[in-house]
Design a protein around this nucleic acid. Structure first.
Lengths: 108, 108
DNA sequence: CGAATGGTTCAACTATATTCGAACCATGGC
DNA sequence: GCCATGGTTCGAATATAGTTGAACCATTCG
């Protein structure tokens, strides 16, 4: 492969920092399964394949759906790495727009 | 009427402090209309009749519904006073269970 | 290349939330 | 007592969200 330019494969939509909406973020976090994912990711970048999502036998389409809600609300970043995907918390963006929210939610 | 004991009229259910659930609170706050109410009440105790609820022409049953969601999540206290009702924020309870949450949500 | 792995998207179904009118209840004032 | 005011509750209709299998796409590994 040419090492010059990355082909940017399967990039999903992520809202810009200034477009984050508080109620959308709160809604994304208001589901126990999703909040659990956020807690997990908060511990450090995680591979989506390793995300337990509460129940061990959750279909991948369901898992994908929850990731989408979190991603579109601007809570998580979801990037392709290898043949899988890596999840990361949009810590700086959330902190910039809703300072303190993440800490409160993760600690409560 | 005997002035000795209050008849406790129309008392609605309010969850105890220890029974508050984070995801339920987040859900209650994730609706723009409800968040607006909370902002209003945060400015001081308010009479329900004076709550604009975004739209000026919201049916009372709809308004009552949103109040119920906020009340059952433990966000608001809803008490009968005179022939109306007074809303107040459950500031101390929320602060005790989810310290910082209220401030973050109200300031963001 | 071909198979296996990991994940998104689509469409259909189910479940839950929202909206609102109507009926009902309590208080206050006349 | 009676009426007006303010608000809850119920039930039905609508809208939105969650769940899932199937089809499809990319990447890795042999």
């Amino acid at each position: 492969m040419a090492s010059s330019d990355a082909p940017a494969p399967l990039e999903l939509f992520h809202p810009d920092r200034e477009d984050l909406v508080l109620t959308d973020v709160l809604f994304a976090l208001s589901d126990p399964a999703r909040l659990e994912i956020v807690r997990q990711v908060a511990g450090g970048t995680i591979e989506m394949a390793n995300c337990h999502l509460q129940n061990p036998s959750v279909p991948k389409s369901t898992k994908s759906h929850h990731m989408k809600v979190l991603r579109e609300a601007g809570v998580l970043r979801n990037e392709p790495v290898g043949r899988g995907r890596v999840l990361s918390l949009r810590h700086d963006d959330l902190e910039a727009r809703f300072p303190g929210l993440l800490r409160v939610v993760l600690e409560s």
